[in-house]
Nucleic acid binder design. Structure first.
Lengths: 187, 187, 187, 187
DNA sequence: AATGAATGAGATTTCATTCAT
DNA sequence: AATGAATGAAATCTCATTCAT
């Protein structure tokens, strides 16, 4: 019987847009509310405060990325197909929702202190992939070191596109990035 | 021969420490001044404003990194020795001044909009290295894509150490990181 | 014969509890409603607004105290028995519902401006008692001054118990307080 | 060499005045600042926040009262002269600075939770007086119970004057209040 | 009838910066 | 030359109350 919530989704969209456009700290509640077409106070019915909104956005979208990665990896038969599928899926997501990716980049280091330690992150997914590959003899080295390298190749290529060092769309680099990753993983 | 300003160095150290500890936006002038053991107004004798301090810290330290990279690369004969030297030098800097690295990580994305576009960055150094290597037949592929991958491997390994996914010191990974980079560059 | 409102009593209990626990101003409608197990809007069905609730709680409980005092005083034959009965009855109420007393203490000074001036208060009851006693030759002095002293002895002893300066229960002090009051009244 | 503080005293005076006039909660920082003739932010250089200001005002003035009481009590030879001196001194203070007394009344119960437990209060002073008197055979009973009664007589008489039940000035009641107290204290 | 989402107004507080001393 | 008090502007957040469902 209660009034159905109307502001939640617009607030999330507006927040993501403004955060990405101006930076998290530079974006005020007022700005978000105005873009969402509602009052500032409405935000506080759905999140405890601004920080809560930021963290909630971050974990939500990070969860999405993990799910996509998991699915892509599960779809492949061997290491090669898994890595190609993961790279393709992630970069497709990025091209479709570049804001999500930019947001994660923006806040990851700042949130690193406050995030719940048990939150599953893409790093964990890739680490698991590396461990499996090593066990099956498809890769060689220390799993965590390999994971770092693979994530790095993925991320930095995206950053280069993001900042215009490399021309987009990012999907164009899915294959070379997968190949570079495989070169690092294999032996 | 005016006597040298006394507060400049303490202010820079205090600022770096507080920025890294709490985030740039969360750190106020009061806080910095208190940690530097001087007054709030002293800051404005050395920098135009807080932003100026942040940007100046960033470019200064980034310049350091570039210089170290340039020197290391110049010291090597071929691609292999250049990459190994670069990796070693950078990670040594990190182990000696981990705050510098964390600071750069923290602010890079937030500053990306305001930085002067002609500022030479580590990405440029590595890009040049890749271009040279390709020209000399030591590497194969598109220089910018290779640069992204190499930087990514470097950075993310450091991040893994920073956040405790990999045990430090970072120097321990100089060789494997160089080798992974070479595997991506060569052929 | 409309069915009786369900939320009224829980709201009153919750309000009293939260007011006493946190202070009147520090307690919000949300808080009260949550503790009462109903919606925020429900409050407005029973009271015009928050102030109305506060004043209504205050006058209601003050009325109770007056009624108990009146009854006790009427039950006694002479000044001595009246005072003993009043003291006993009041302190019994306090021991049974300490929140009521604390609430009255908390808000009395804050409400002193807004209360209807014709509201009968315990002070009036005791004043009447003193006037009567003087008329009957059982007490001597100015009625209002005596009333102030008697109320003071009553109240402050309760406050001392409330804040742990004196060990409870308050009933234990009914006789000494009555005796002290009588010593002030008589002569 | 620094700018000397100019807003501290006006802020304290304005705060006391507005608190007493409107109640602590009903008085905003803006109101205080306006009456003090300075900006709202100035307050935060001298006190951590509004609560800090309230507590600091309270303890300061309570300390004054304790000092006056101590001095008055020390000036008397026996219980009788001590009580008369205390009553006279306190009520004189009240007549000269009624705001101070009203402020203490207003906030005492609300602050009771947050105050430092080791803060010396008038209650302690009177308790000590009662203990001494009992030891010297000048009074009889339990010291804390007597103290409660004496404080009560003092306070409530002042409250009656404050709210117009008794005509002022309060000093007029110094003698009767002292006499009533002595009747309670003495055997 | 009853909910709880939404709101406008206003609260407190923080900030980078300026300024009087 | 150097301080730290003062400030205007803006930030985040809370509040009692209303309103759509």
């Amino acid at each position: 019987m209660a009034r159905p919530p109307k502001a939640r989704v617009p607030l999330k969209q507006a927040a993501l847009e403004r955060f990405v456009e101006q930076g998290v700290h530079a974006t005020g509640i007022r700005d978000i509310a105005k873009h969402a077409g509602c009052s500032e106070a409405a935000l506080y019915r759905h999140w405890k405060n601004k920080d809560d909104l930021v963290v909630s956005l971050f974990t939500e979208h990070l969860g999405e990325v993990c799910a996509i990665l998991d699915q892509a990896i599960a779809s492949g038969e061997d290491l090669e197909s898994k890595v190609h599928a993961a790279s393709k899926a992630c970069y497709k997501l990025y091209d479709e929702q570049p804001r999500v990716f930019r947001f994660i980049l923006l806040v990851q280091h700042e949130l690193s202190r406050t995030l719940p330690t048990d939150l599953r992150m893409p790093q964990d997914v890739v680490h698991d992939l590396a461990k499996e590959a090593i066990k099956r003899g498809e890769a060689k080295g220390e799993a965590m070191v390999l994971a770092a390298a693979v994530i790095g190749i993925f991320l930095e290529t995206a950053v280069f596109v993001l900042y215009g060092r490399l021309p987009g769309p990012l999907s164009r680099y899915a294959v070379p990035v997968a190949e570079a990753s495989l070169r690092v993983l294999r032996k």
